[in-house]
Every structure is written in structure tokens, then in C-alpha cells.
């Protein structure tokens, strides 16, 4: 492949949305209330829509006979480049909301920067997606405040989720070799530039939600290089089941 770095860079962005979309999709019919159920699955649908645009572009860059579906469905665990945060399970609603919030703040800042890329296709996807992501961020921010500043039980569970998921936030700002190559060409976003802004945003909402900001300096990473937590394999076996069982099936 001629442009392997660009291809891998696009997968890195898209895989975050795919895996998070799949996690949210698991809540179809299982949300804690009808409204939150619809909200989570709506967000999932937005993410899957964005993912299609990215994978179609990646398939074009690959320039062989692979399709968007092949890219989405037929890779092995180590060939997915999503961050560890998005593959973490829906342990309870607090985890779902905290995971979403920690990603949405990042996603919004990321897409803001991606609109300045030299790659016109990525700019078009970013301009389209950011409108949707601002709704996602609004939803997860509202719920984080409601849960944190809610009952004793909701506060305790939400603090637990924040403490557990905090360890995956630093990876959002890790850059891979493909990232760095694309940054130097003016195509990729240099995520390190908005790291301080990210933590400022996150901490402000946590404070408003009367939650403690974790002090731990221990962070996990690996997802961006394909080294995942034990959760991704199970998620992929769900996601890929139909394509693996009935190869080339279509809706």
C-alpha cells in the first residue's frame, strides 16, 4: 500500500467510534430508562455513520479490493487501533456515562482540530461529525452532573467509575508512528497540543458534579498499537459474528 500511514491514521480515528458505538449498541433494549436507552443507541448510530465515512475513505486509500465492511468486520483483535477507554464494558450506567463523557470531551476537541487538516475528506467528515458530537457531549455532561450530584448511591458509583476509567485517559494523547508521520504532513491532529485543555474541561465538570478528581498517575496504554484489554476480544466476537458465520452477507 502506497499510503500506509494515512490508512493506519484513519483506522485509529474510526476504530474509536466503531468500538464505542458497539458498546453503546449493547444497551439497545437494556438502557436504565426508555429515554437513556434511545439516547445511547442514537449516539451509537451517529458513531457508526461517522465510521462508514472513515472506512470508505480508508478502503479507497488501500486501493485493493477490500471494502468498508472488510475493514470494519474482518480484522483480528491486534489490528484494531482504538484506545482502551472505548472498549471498557458497560459495568453499570455510571460506567457508561463516565466512559462517554471522558471520550466526548476528547472527541469534540479532536474534531475541532481535524477541521484544520490538509486532507479535504477528513475535514468534511470532521465538519459533519462535530455537530453530532456536540449533542453527545451535552448528554454525557448533563448525566455526569446528575449522577455525581445525585443520591449517595449514584455519587458513590460514579466516583468509582471515574477512578477506574481515569487510568485510560492519558492514552488519548499518545501518538503512534503513523500519527507522527501524518502530523508532519499537516494531515493529522497533534493531540498533545490540547491535552491541558482536555483535563481542564474534564476537571471543571467533575468539580461541578461534586466528584473528586483522581490523583493517580498510573496510566494504561496499548490500544493504539493493537495491544488491548481482555474486553475487546469478546466485543469483536459479537460484532463479527454474522460476517464470520455467513461470509459476505449483506442486509
Amino acid at each position: 500500500m502506497k499510503n500506509k500511514n494515512l490508512y493506519n491514521y484513519i483506522l485509529g480515528i474510526a476504530d474509536n467510534s466503531l468500538i464505542l458505538g458497539q458498546r453503546l449498541g449493547e444497551l439497545t433494549g437494556h438502557g436504565p430508562s426508555l429515554e437513556t436507552d434511545i439516547a445511547c443507541t442514537n449516539i451509537s448510530l451517529d458513531l457508526f455513520g461517522q465510521v462508514r465515512s472513515y472506512y470508505q475513505y480508508a478502503a479507497k486509500i488501500a486501493g485493493d479490493d477490500r471494502t468498508e465492511d472488510d475493514i470494519a468486520m474482518l480484522r483480528k483483535e491486534r489490528e484494531y487501533f482504538n484506545v482502551l477507554l472505548v472498549e471498557q464494558p458497560n459495568t453499570n450506567f455510571a460506567y457508561t456515562i463516565v466512559r462517554q463523557f471522558l471520550f466526548d470531551v476528547y472527541h469534540y476537541l479532536f474534531l475541532t482540530e481535524l477541521q484544520k487538516s490538509h486532507d479535504v475528506t477528513l475535514v468534511a467528515i470532521a465538519k459533519k461529525s462535530i455537530k453530532e458530537v456536540s449533542y453527545h457531549k451535552r448528554f454525557s455532561t448533563d448525566w455526569l452532573k446528575r449522577l455525581g450530584d445525585g443520591t449517595t448511591e449514584s455519587k458513590q458509583k460514579t466516583q468509582q467509575a471515574v477512578n477506574d476509567l481515569w487510568t485510560y485517559t492519558e492514552e488519548l494523547f499518545y501518538t503512534t508512528q503513523a500519527d507522527n508521520a501524518m502530523i508532519s504532513e499537516g494531515i493529522a491532529v497533534d493531540v498533545t497540543k490540547f491535552k491541558a485543555n482536555y483535563y481542564q474541561n474534564v476537571n471543571a465538570v467533575l468539580t461541578e458534579a461534586t466528584l473528586d478528581i483522581p490523583e493517580s498517575k498510573f496510566f494504561q496504554k496499548g490500544g493504539k498499537q493493537g495491544i488491548h484489554t481482555e474486553h475487546l476480544g469478546y466485543l469483536l466476537s459479537d460484532l463479527q459474528y454474522m460476517q464470520r458465520t455467513y461470509p459476505n452477507m449483506e442486509w
Binding site: 426508555l34 429515554e35 439516547a39 442514537n42 453530532e132 449533542y135 451535552r138 448528554f139
Partner: peptide, 26 residues
């Protein structure tokens, strides 16, 4: 009623006069 509705582009509302539930295009 809900910021998210039956499709991504809509929110759910309800009328407190006639009680009709309806969609609002965001």
C-alpha cells in the same frame, strides 16, 4: 420528554394542553 427521539434528528416532546406526544426536529 427526551433529547433523543425515534431518529437521530429529532427530540421527543409532549403537549400539556392536549397531551399529544410529538417529535421536534432539532
Amino acid at each position: 420528554v427526551s433529547q433523543f427521539g425515534s431518529t437521530a434528528c429529532k427530540a421527543q416532546f409532549q403537549c400539556d394542553d392536549c397531551q399529544e406526544p410529538f417529535d421536534y426536529f432539532k
